[in-house]
Protein backbone atom coordinates (compact mmCIF):
# COMPACT_ATOMS: atom_id res chain seq x y z
CA UNK A 1 0.00 0.00 0.00
CA UNK A 2 2.78 2.37 0.93
CA UNK A 3 4.39 1.70 -2.40
CA UNK A 4 1.20 2.49 -4.29
CA UNK A 5 0.81 5.74 -2.41
CA UNK A 6 4.40 6.64 -3.03
CA UNK A 7 3.97 5.84 -6.73
CA UNK A 8 0.88 8.01 -6.80
CA UNK A 9 2.83 10.80 -5.13
CA UNK A 10 5.48 10.50 -7.85
CA UNK A 11 2.79 10.85 -10.49
CA UNK A 12 1.30 13.92 -8.85
CA UNK A 13 4.71 15.47 -8.37
CA UNK A 14 5.62 14.73 -11.97
CA UNK A 15 2.50 16.40 -13.27
CA UNK A 16 3.13 19.33 -10.99
CA UNK A 17 6.55 19.82 -12.56
CA UNK A 18 5.09 19.55 -16.04
CA UNK A 19 2.29 21.98 -15.25
CA UNK A 20 4.83 24.45 -13.90
CA UNK A 21 6.98 24.21 -17.00
CA UNK A 22 3.92 24.38 -19.20
CA UNK A 23 2.61 27.51 -17.56
CA UNK A 24 5.98 29.16 -17.95
CA UNK A 25 6.21 28.22 -21.62
CA UNK A 26 2.64 29.22 -22.41
CA UNK A 27 3.16 32.57 -20.78
CA UNK A 28 6.34 33.31 -22.69
CA UNK A 29 4.80 34.96 -25.69
CA UNK A 30 6.56 37.83 -27.33
CA UNK A 31 3.56 40.06 -27.29
CA UNK A 32 0.78 38.58 -25.29
CA UNK A 33 -1.46 41.58 -25.34
CA UNK A 34 -4.50 41.99 -27.53
CA UNK A 35 -5.73 45.17 -29.14
CA UNK A 36 -9.39 45.51 -29.93
CA UNK A 37 -10.62 47.53 -32.84
CA UNK A 38 -12.36 50.80 -32.00
CA UNK A 39 -16.07 51.14 -32.64
CA UNK A 40 -17.02 53.78 -35.21
CA UNK A 41 -20.70 53.67 -36.13
CA UNK A 42 -21.97 51.80 -39.17
CA UNK A 43 -20.63 51.16 -42.63
CA UNK A 44 -22.53 50.71 -45.87
CA UNK A 45 -20.84 48.49 -48.43
CA UNK A 46 -21.10 49.20 -52.20
CA UNK A 47 -23.62 46.34 -52.45
CA UNK A 48 -25.92 48.12 -49.98
CA UNK A 49 -25.42 45.91 -46.94
CA UNK A 50 -24.70 47.65 -43.66
CA UNK A 51 -22.29 46.46 -41.00
CA UNK A 52 -21.14 47.75 -37.64
CA UNK A 53 -18.00 49.73 -38.27
CA UNK A 54 -14.66 49.54 -36.47
CA UNK A 55 -11.25 51.08 -37.02
CA UNK A 56 -7.64 50.09 -36.41
CA UNK A 57 -4.51 52.17 -36.84
CA UNK A 58 -1.06 50.72 -37.37
CA UNK A 59 2.44 51.88 -38.09
CA UNK A 60 5.29 50.06 -39.77
CA UNK A 61 8.70 51.21 -38.56
CA UNK A 62 12.18 50.50 -39.97
CA UNK A 63 13.30 49.46 -36.50
CA UNK A 64 11.86 48.72 -33.04
CA UNK A 65 13.07 51.79 -31.20
CA UNK A 66 9.61 53.33 -31.20
CA UNK A 67 8.93 51.63 -27.88
CA UNK A 68 5.41 50.23 -27.79
CA UNK A 69 5.18 46.54 -27.13
CA UNK A 70 8.92 46.04 -27.52
CA UNK A 71 9.66 48.23 -24.56
CA UNK A 72 11.58 51.49 -24.24
CA UNK A 73 14.84 50.53 -25.93
CA UNK A 74 13.27 48.53 -28.70
CA UNK A 75 13.63 45.24 -26.82
CA UNK A 76 15.85 42.34 -27.79
CA UNK A 77 16.18 43.39 -31.44
CA UNK A 78 16.05 47.17 -31.76
CA UNK A 79 17.21 47.01 -35.37
CA UNK A 80 14.41 44.76 -36.59
CA UNK A 81 11.48 46.15 -38.58
CA UNK A 82 8.38 46.15 -36.46
CA UNK A 83 4.67 46.85 -36.79
CA UNK A 84 3.00 48.63 -33.93
CA UNK A 85 -0.08 50.54 -32.86
CA UNK A 86 -0.52 54.02 -34.23
CA UNK A 87 -2.26 57.04 -32.88
CA UNK A 88 -5.07 58.76 -34.72
CA UNK A 89 -2.65 60.47 -37.09
CA UNK A 90 0.06 57.86 -37.35
CA UNK A 91 1.90 58.85 -34.16
CA UNK A 92 3.97 56.18 -32.46
CA UNK A 93 2.32 54.99 -29.26
CA UNK A 94 5.40 54.59 -27.14
CA UNK A 95 3.58 53.37 -24.05
CA UNK A 96 1.38 50.79 -25.74
CA UNK A 97 1.87 47.35 -24.22
CA UNK A 98 0.27 45.56 -27.14
CA UNK A 99 0.65 46.01 -30.83
CA UNK A 100 0.49 42.99 -33.15
CA UNK A 101 -2.40 40.85 -31.94
CA UNK A 102 -5.78 42.20 -32.89
CA UNK A 103 -9.34 41.32 -31.97
CA UNK A 104 -12.11 42.36 -34.34
CA UNK A 105 -15.79 41.48 -34.17
CA UNK A 106 -17.36 39.01 -36.58
CA UNK A 107 -19.52 40.13 -39.50
CA UNK A 108 -18.38 43.72 -39.27
CA UNK A 109 -16.56 46.23 -41.39
CA UNK A 110 -13.09 47.13 -40.16
CA UNK A 111 -11.27 50.11 -41.63
CA UNK A 112 -7.55 49.79 -41.21
CA UNK A 113 -5.12 52.62 -41.73
CA UNK A 114 -1.43 51.81 -41.95
CA UNK A 115 1.35 54.37 -42.02
CA UNK A 116 4.50 52.90 -43.49
CA UNK A 117 7.73 54.56 -42.25
CA UNK A 118 10.21 52.20 -43.90
CA UNK A 119 11.73 52.26 -47.38
CA UNK A 120 11.44 49.29 -49.71
CA UNK A 121 12.44 47.53 -52.91
CA UNK A 122 11.08 45.29 -55.64
CA UNK A 123 8.79 42.70 -54.15
CA UNK A 124 9.75 39.04 -54.57
CA UNK A 125 6.30 37.77 -55.50
CA UNK A 126 4.26 40.42 -57.26
CA UNK A 127 1.08 38.57 -56.38
CA UNK A 128 1.31 40.56 -53.20
CA UNK A 129 1.69 43.90 -54.93
CA UNK A 130 -2.05 43.93 -55.57
CA UNK A 131 -4.76 44.84 -53.11
CA UNK A 132 -6.79 41.70 -52.41
CA UNK A 133 -9.70 40.86 -50.19
CA UNK A 134 -10.73 44.39 -49.25
CA UNK A 135 -14.05 46.04 -50.05
CA UNK A 136 -13.93 46.61 -53.80
CA UNK A 137 -10.43 45.16 -53.82
CA UNK A 138 -9.17 48.70 -53.52
CA UNK A 139 -7.34 50.79 -50.99
CA UNK A 140 -6.78 54.50 -50.60
CA UNK A 141 -3.15 55.52 -50.92
CA UNK A 142 -1.55 58.71 -49.77
CA UNK A 143 2.04 58.69 -51.05
CA UNK A 144 3.21 61.36 -48.61
CA UNK A 145 1.37 62.00 -45.37
CA UNK A 146 2.63 64.91 -43.28
CA UNK A 147 2.84 63.68 -39.71
CA UNK A 148 3.54 67.15 -38.36
CA UNK A 149 0.49 68.89 -39.79
CA UNK A 150 -1.66 65.74 -39.98
CA UNK A 151 -2.55 66.38 -43.61
CA UNK A 152 -2.04 64.66 -46.92
CA UNK A 153 1.02 66.19 -48.53
CA UNK A 154 0.06 64.45 -51.77
CA UNK A 155 -3.43 63.63 -52.99
CA UNK A 156 -5.25 60.52 -51.84
CA UNK A 157 -5.73 58.02 -54.67
CA UNK A 158 -7.80 54.88 -54.95
CA UNK A 159 -5.52 52.04 -56.01
CA UNK A 160 -5.84 48.38 -56.86
CA UNK A 161 -2.12 47.75 -56.76
CA UNK A 162 1.15 49.55 -56.31
CA UNK A 163 4.27 49.36 -58.49
CA UNK A 164 6.20 46.16 -57.80
CA UNK A 165 9.42 48.08 -57.38
CA UNK A 166 8.08 50.39 -54.71
CA UNK A 167 6.84 48.00 -52.05
CA UNK A 168 7.84 48.46 -48.42
CA UNK A 169 5.91 45.70 -46.70
CA UNK A 170 2.51 44.04 -46.89
CA UNK A 171 -0.29 43.38 -44.47
CA UNK A 172 -1.60 39.91 -45.25
CA UNK A 173 -4.26 38.16 -43.20
CA UNK A 174 -4.70 34.48 -43.86
CA UNK A 175 -5.02 31.08 -42.35
CA UNK A 176 -7.85 28.70 -42.03
CA UNK A 177 -10.14 28.90 -39.11
CA UNK A 178 -13.08 26.60 -39.11
CA UNK A 179 -15.24 29.07 -40.96
CA UNK A 180 -16.72 27.99 -44.24
CA UNK A 181 -15.01 30.74 -46.10
CA UNK A 182 -11.38 31.42 -46.07
CA UNK A 183 -10.05 34.69 -44.82
CA UNK A 184 -7.54 36.32 -47.10
CA UNK A 185 -6.68 39.97 -47.19
CA UNK A 186 -3.47 41.30 -48.58
CA UNK A 187 -2.62 44.95 -48.93
CA UNK A 188 0.78 46.10 -50.15
CA UNK A 189 2.28 48.96 -48.16
CA UNK A 190 4.28 51.31 -50.36
CA UNK A 191 7.77 52.43 -49.49
CA UNK A 192 8.52 55.87 -48.13
CA UNK A 193 11.26 57.94 -49.70
CA UNK A 194 14.53 56.11 -49.16
CA UNK A 195 16.72 59.16 -48.53
CA UNK A 196 14.29 60.67 -46.05
CA UNK A 197 14.00 57.39 -44.17
CA UNK A 198 17.77 57.00 -43.91
CA UNK A 199 18.29 60.61 -42.86
CA UNK A 200 15.63 60.33 -40.16
CA UNK A 201 17.07 57.05 -38.85
CA UNK A 202 20.47 58.61 -38.46
CA UNK A 203 18.93 61.04 -36.04
CA UNK A 204 17.14 58.26 -34.16
CA UNK A 205 13.70 59.16 -35.52
CA UNK A 206 11.37 58.43 -38.36
CA UNK A 207 10.56 60.19 -41.59
CA UNK A 208 8.07 63.02 -41.49
CA UNK A 209 6.38 61.76 -44.66
CA UNK A 210 5.38 58.10 -44.43
CA UNK A 211 3.02 56.52 -46.93
CA UNK A 212 -0.51 55.83 -45.76
CA UNK A 213 -2.85 53.06 -46.92
CA UNK A 214 -6.47 52.89 -45.83
CA UNK A 215 -8.76 49.99 -46.64
CA UNK A 216 -11.87 48.31 -45.30
CA UNK A 217 -12.50 44.62 -44.89
CA UNK A 218 -15.63 42.74 -43.98
CA UNK A 219 -14.98 40.07 -41.36
CA UNK A 220 -16.73 36.74 -41.60
CA UNK A 221 -17.39 34.09 -38.99
CA UNK A 222 -15.49 33.89 -35.74
CA UNK A 223 -12.08 32.30 -35.86
CA UNK A 224 -8.39 32.69 -35.21
CA UNK A 225 -6.17 33.72 -38.07
CA UNK A 226 -2.72 35.18 -38.45
CA UNK A 227 -1.33 38.09 -40.31
CA UNK A 228 2.18 38.54 -41.58
CA UNK A 229 4.16 40.54 -44.05
CA UNK A 230 4.69 38.73 -47.32
CA UNK A 231 7.64 40.74 -48.56
CA UNK A 232 10.67 39.16 -46.97
CA UNK A 233 13.35 41.50 -45.72
CA UNK A 234 15.32 39.34 -43.31
CA UNK A 235 18.63 40.06 -44.95
CA UNK A 236 21.24 37.39 -44.68
CA UNK A 237 18.78 34.59 -44.03
CA UNK A 238 17.50 32.02 -46.46
CA UNK A 239 15.04 33.69 -48.84
CA UNK A 240 15.23 36.61 -46.43
CA UNK A 241 12.44 35.05 -44.41
CA UNK A 242 14.44 34.46 -41.25
CA UNK A 243 15.14 36.60 -38.19
CA UNK A 244 12.49 39.32 -37.90
CA UNK A 245 10.23 37.68 -40.49
CA UNK A 246 10.16 34.47 -38.45
CA UNK A 247 9.64 36.00 -35.04
CA UNK A 248 6.12 36.84 -33.92
CA UNK A 249 5.28 40.42 -32.99
CA UNK A 250 7.66 42.07 -35.45
CA UNK A 251 6.07 41.47 -38.81
CA UNK A 252 3.50 38.90 -37.81
CA UNK A 253 0.78 38.56 -35.27
CA UNK A 254 -2.59 37.07 -34.46
CA UNK A 255 -5.85 38.17 -36.01
CA UNK A 256 -8.77 37.07 -33.89
CA UNK A 257 -12.33 37.47 -35.09
CA UNK A 258 -14.58 37.27 -32.09
CA UNK A 259 -17.83 38.67 -30.79
Amino acid sequence: MKRILAALATVVLGFGVIAGIGTYVAAAKNDSGLTSATAAGTFTAPDGKTYPHYTLNMNVYPNSTFGGHHGAGGGAHPDWVSYGLAGEHGEPLTEAATGTNFVVPAHSAVTITIWQYDSGETITNDFFAKVRGTVGNTATLVQRYDTKTHTNATEAKTVTQIPSDGVGHTFTIHGLADAKNQVFVSVPLPMSNDDEVTAAEEEGGFTQFPTMMTFTIITGDEGEYVWNCEFPCGDGTVARFGSAMSTMSYMSGHWIVKG
Binding site: T10, V11, G14
Partner: peptide, 10 residues
Amino acid sequence: MSGMLVLLYG
Protein backbone atom coordinates in the same frame (compact mmCIF):
# COMPACT_ATOMS: atom_id res chain seq x y z
CA MET B 1 3.15 9.86 -18.49
CA SER B 2 1.55 8.54 -15.31
CA GLY B 3 2.69 5.03 -16.14
CA MET B 4 6.22 6.22 -16.79
CA LEU B 5 6.26 8.13 -13.50
CA VAL B 6 5.17 4.97 -11.71
CA LEU B 7 8.01 3.18 -13.47
CA LEU B 8 10.43 5.89 -12.38
CA TYR B 9 9.31 5.47 -8.82
CA GLY B 10 9.68 1.72 -9.25
